[in-house]
Amino acid sequence: MEMNMLVATEEKTPEYWYGIADRIAAKIGETAAAHDREGSFVAENYDLLREAGLIGAAVPVELGGDGMDHATLCGVVRRIGRGCGSTALAFSMHCHQVAVAAWRWQHMQAPTDGLLRGVAAENLVLVSSGGSDWLQGAGTATKVEGGFRIDARKVFSSGCQAGSLLMTSAVYDDPDAGATVLHFAVPFSAEGVTILDTWDTMGMRGTGSHDVELKAVFVADAAVSGRRPQGKWHPLFHIISMIAFPLIYSAYLGVAEGAYDAALEAARKKPANAGLVALTGEMQNAVWTAETALAAMIATAATAQPGPETTSRVMTGRTVAGRAAIRTVELALEVGGGGAFYRKSPIERAFRDIQGARFHPLQEPAQLELAGRLALGLDIDG
């Protein structure tokens, strides 16, 4: 079914969106292997997301979107991940930028309405550089008349080839406050913005997570949306942690579930034996653990207030869900047998894609430090 054949008058319940996501997953699953083999960006899959109304679906209704809630958005990303992990992961980066902006507008009356209206009306695709910047920020902001000159190289800019705005930051040596991270959006069409062809990786090869170079890019004073001390936890990052990581790890759970399904299909064609049954049971435990950890992350985002304790709970879920998703696919490789070792197998691709779950902040050592410092009543900034 073509996405533009969906009935526009159907009530947009979670089931409506999940039905769309399942159809997209089936369609993009047909080309996922080719994108992986070629290392090519999943550009046509973004066309499907646009046609289905998913780019602006999480924008509040008052601002022109469909008001899709966070849990449903996570479910959409998860379902897309079953068909193509690269599409799900790149899309999750756009989704979390939209969801964070919507949360801030709804709960803090933050002036993000212009950005959100643009996403809904113009299908603007937001590209995050946050994972590569995190608390430290990266790049240099130099004060000039009316604004700042930005010089930076932003790695892991997933979806940049479809991007409208790069949501990023740079470090300004403020004469009064010291090292200060400035947050701002830069249009990909702006002078001095260049996508560098750097993305050649083990897995998630279709995300197009190239480096983006900012060379003498001008950002007006009025375009700076936030300032914070470099390297310190800031309230904005507690909001990002709460909202973004359930979405990102929904993509990885989708990859794990796709491998799980493929492994069961292969195993059911074999004679049952005790070893195969035990491996399948262990795989079931692993995917259950990932599902349960992700559900706890989503529930936390729905009910908690952003802050250190909430961030620690979500990041604990990130570690547990990531570990369990990786283990699910490891076991799927064994349950699927020798056929899963071939490059043509979706399990082999999932095995490489799932490794990306290791690299998003907070990576496990930093997550354990945060959890430990909170438990001991220590300052989380060290």
Rank of each mutant, 00 (worst) to 15 (best):
A57D: 01
E369Y: 05
P246K: 01
W288V: 07
R352N: 12
L253V: 06
P365A: 07
G139T: 08
T311M: 10
A272G: 14
K270F: 05
L48K: 12
A102T: 05
A278Q: 13
D379S: 04
A162N: 10
G254H: 05
H234R: 06
I248G: 00
M242Q: 12
E15T: 10
R227A: 11
I239R: 00
Y172K: 06
G377S: 04
H183Y: 13
I55A: 14
D66C: 07
T303F: 00
L124F: 05
E62I: 06
M202N: 15
G317V: 07
A21Q: 00
A295I: 00
A32G: 12
T303I: 06
W233Y: 04
I55T: 08
K12H: 13
S129G: 13
Y46H: 06
K154G: 07
T31M: 15
F41L: 02
A296L: 06
D174E: 08
Q355D: 08
Q136M: 08
G377L: 00
E348I: 06
Q284W: 00
D197G: 12
R268T: 11
A120W: 06
S158D: 03
R149M: 09
S132M: 10
G139W: 02
V119F: 02
R343H: 15
R37C: 08
F91D: 05
N123K: 11
G29T: 12
L126K: 06
M93N: 09
A371K: 13
H107D: 06
R23A: 11
T311W: 00
A244R: 00
E334N: 13
R349G: 10
V155C: 12
V217D: 03
L48I: 08
A216D: 15
D261L: 15
V277K: 09
M242T: 09
D113K: 10
Q136N: 14
R373V: 03
D36I: 08
T72P: 01
A101T: 03
G307K: 11
P187H: 14
E364F: 08
A58V: 01
I347G: 04
L124I: 08
A90E: 02
L253I: 04
W103D: 00
I240L: 02
A290W: 04
A357N: 05
L331R: 07
I326K: 15
E44K: 15
L264K: 14
T198E: 09
D22F: 11
V98F: 01
G85S: 09
L264N: 09
F359C: 11
F341Y: 15
A34G: 12
F148I: 04
F237L: 13
A267Q: 05
G159T: 03
Y172E: 04
A170N: 11
G372D: 12
A266L: 11
D66K: 10
R327E: 10
D261W: 08
T300L: 08
N45G: 13
E145Y: 09
F188Q: 05
Y172G: 02
S157E: 07
L362E: 02
H70R: 01
